[in-house]
């Protein structure tokens, strides 16, 4: 694995850039179904992710984290409120295939090999052809899967499957990358390795990222800003800036700043009682 390069496109601290850059979520509310069986999933959620920034969403199960990502990806339409990505509605970006999505259960197609899974977005966008082979080859080495090009997903470990899933999500160089608990099913060691690799990939590509996670340490290690949500309906309970510099390293997990951030998230989630 090559070391993380000092890239000028590295995600900057939150707050950089204007309103039209990055992702703006404004008063987003979502209700599923009709009364009397309606489910009120989100209530007036607002946040902003600067261009190239990294925001983590954390909160108890069922508080609407996946719903927020689906709204950002134009897989759902909000009941109220507005989403803008670089000043445009998500539907415009989705039609241009500028959104990358990493699913919780990797969502790889089991009948396709690693290369063919990564190739899928190129095929769907009608961009199959000359530069295709080199793009896919670059992606494979970017996520460190050389030698497994022709393996089927069932022959890979959980961590390798998520690498394929990440490679597939960035095949078309998306403007935003949405990750729904991508490492939730992995062990701690694999998870931390992939955390650092994800940061390296994002730094190389300058992509804006929103990550849903259940892990306090993952949120603190990866994000510029952590948004803590409360359930039923989902509301923004707290916003926590992460004071760690970039590029992040696993060694930072031993610093007081890291512990402090983790504790702030914990308090926001569970209250200050022990």
């Amino acid at each position: 694995m090559p070391p993380a390069p000092e890239s000028s496109a590295a995600p900057g601290p939150a707050g950089r850039g204007g309103e039209d850059d990055g992702i703006t979520v404004d008063g987003l509310s979502m209700t599923f179904g009709q009364e009397p069986a309606a489910v009120w999933a989100l209530d007036e959620v607002s946040f902003h992710v600067p261009k190239g920034g990294f925001t983590a969403l954390i909160g108890p199960s069922g508080c609407g984290k996946s719903t927020i990502l689906r709204l950002l990806a134009d897989l759902l339409a909000p009941t109220a409120g507005r989403v803008a990505i670089s000043g445009r509605p998500p539907s415009a970006l989705r039609k241009q295939r500028r959104i990358g999505f990493v699913f919780q259960e990797h969502a790889l197609l089991p009948w396709r090999s690693v290369v063919d899974n990564i190739r899928l977005p190129l095929q769907l966008s009608g961009r199959a052809g000359r530069d295709l082979a080199s793009t896919v080859g670059d992606l494979i080495s970017l996520v460190g899967l050389e030698g497994f090009e022709n393996s089927k997903p069932s022959e890979l470990s959980g961590g390798m499957r998520q690498r394929v899933s990440i490679a597939r999500a960035i095949t078309l160089s998306p403007e935003v990358l949405l990750l729904d608990e991508p490492f939730g099913a992995l062990d701690e060691i694999t998870r931390q390795t992939l955390n650092i690799e994800l940061l390296r990939i994002l730094a190389e590509t300058g992509t804006t990222a929103v990550l849903v996670t259940h892990s306090l340490s993952e949120a603190a290690l990866l994000a510029d800003e952590v948004i803590v949500l409360s359930p039923r309906p989902g509301r923004v309970k707290a916003r926590i800036e992460v004071p760690l510099k970039r590029p992040r390293t696993l060694a930072m997990m031993k610093t007081p700043e890291f512990f402090h951030t983790e504790n702030l998230i914990r308090e926001a989630l569970f209250g200050s009682s022990p």
């Binding site: 990806a73 969502a107 769907l124």
Partner: peptide
């Protein structure tokens, strides 16, 4: 079709025939 696989094709704005050929038939 698995929900997340269907959503993948939607995020990628796959036309219906691509979705049928590359997702639904397999």
């Amino acid at each position: 079709v698995r929900r997340d696989q269907a959503e993948l094709f939607e995020v990628l704005s796959a036309p219906r025939w691509q979705r049928i050929l590359r997702l639904q038939i397999p």
